[in-house]
Nucleic acid binder design. Structure first.
Lengths: 169, 169
DNA sequence: CATATTAATCAGGGGGCCTTATTGTATTTT
DNA sequence: AAAATACAATAAGGCCCCCTGATTAATATG
């Protein structure tokens, strides 16, 4: 059991190292804008990618953020022309949020192009990695869902939809 | 080559999915303070872990941040009692930054405890994952180093030292 | 000694995420 | 129609990261 514990720790450490390193990598090597993240504006884009034309209230409850924050982020996205606002005809209080083509592009481009460092793995290794990570992410989804049933499933759907759409075409 | 490309994309996507998901995981499941990150104050702690008693100027150039930012972050760390400041006796302009015991503890605790989701992997799989990620991070270090020779090596040393120290004891 | 140069700080600003409180407007309930 | 409720926007504030510009204090140079 000791041995197992060490292996688990090593793996955990590497995973953490990878996470931190990937930030630095983006910074220094790609010299790129911080990728779309899963908070704030990015969270909203992701939710819209899953289901367009949502009301702010709908977004807020779905993403577990306050309506005020939602309003702020939507406004910022609108300013960046990634999103448009239109009052609902049925209920003129609600403001429907919709993705613009640029918004869709932003999301698509955030679906990573393959980073060059993955090329150091053989095809078989890439496969292995995919399998291992899938086990891990599935376990994470389960934990998230257990902790917050109303959110877990939704994020799963969000991510699954996001990262799989590319292969449907 | 097509097949390989798809496998690489799948792996890349999963990696990205894992990264995003781990933020949500921390948020929802661990309900924890955002872990120490590799920017701002965290970056400085990490640099000090690698080499203590550095001047702010040294830190700034090493971490590629402005002296003003460095000053700001150091002040914040001092306020949190993670770091102390002491004027150099050789040159009374320079302010040597040193870790406090609490500062060391902060860094140590940021070295992840093993997250439960890793337990879904068998011992052999944890091993595999470690090996694969090591290949990847090594490739990243090389890329980072190529892009910025003065920084790459240092970050490597930073991380390597950080994540390996636990196993030296 | 007077004049750079250097280390660090102060002042101010921009953008990000996120919160609570307040207000306006539209719709439902009574 | 009046009152309660719901959607959204606005204001203000907190904390984070990070920058430029100007300033102080100490040291090095002419």
């Amino acid at each position: 059991m000791i041995a197992n514990e060490v292996k688990a720790e090593l793996a955990a450490g590497k995973l953490a190292e990878y996470e931190q390193l990937s930030k630095i990598y983006d910074d220094i090597v790609k010299q790129a804008r911080p990728r779309m993240t899963v908070e704030g504006q990015g969270k909203i884009l992701l939710a819209l990618a899953d289901e367009d034309h949502q009301s702010q209230h709908h977004l807020a409850s779905r993403l577990a953020m306050s309506p005020q924050s939602t309003s702020e982020f939507v406004a910022k996205l609108a300013k960046r022309h990634l999103v448009t606002l239109a009052k609902s005809t049925k209920d003129r209080r609600v403001n429907l949020v919709s993705l613009t083509p640029q918004g869709r592009e932003e999301i698509a481009s955030a679906a990573q192009e393959v980073p060059p460092f993955l090329q150091v793995l053989t095809e078989a290794e890439q496969d292995e990695l995919y399998v291992l990570l899938t086990k891990i992410t599935n376990a994470m989804y389960a934990d998230i869902d257990a902790a917050n049933p109303t959110l877990g499933v939704k994020f799963h759907k969000l991510f699954a939809g996001h990262y799989l759409n590319r292969f449907k075409k």
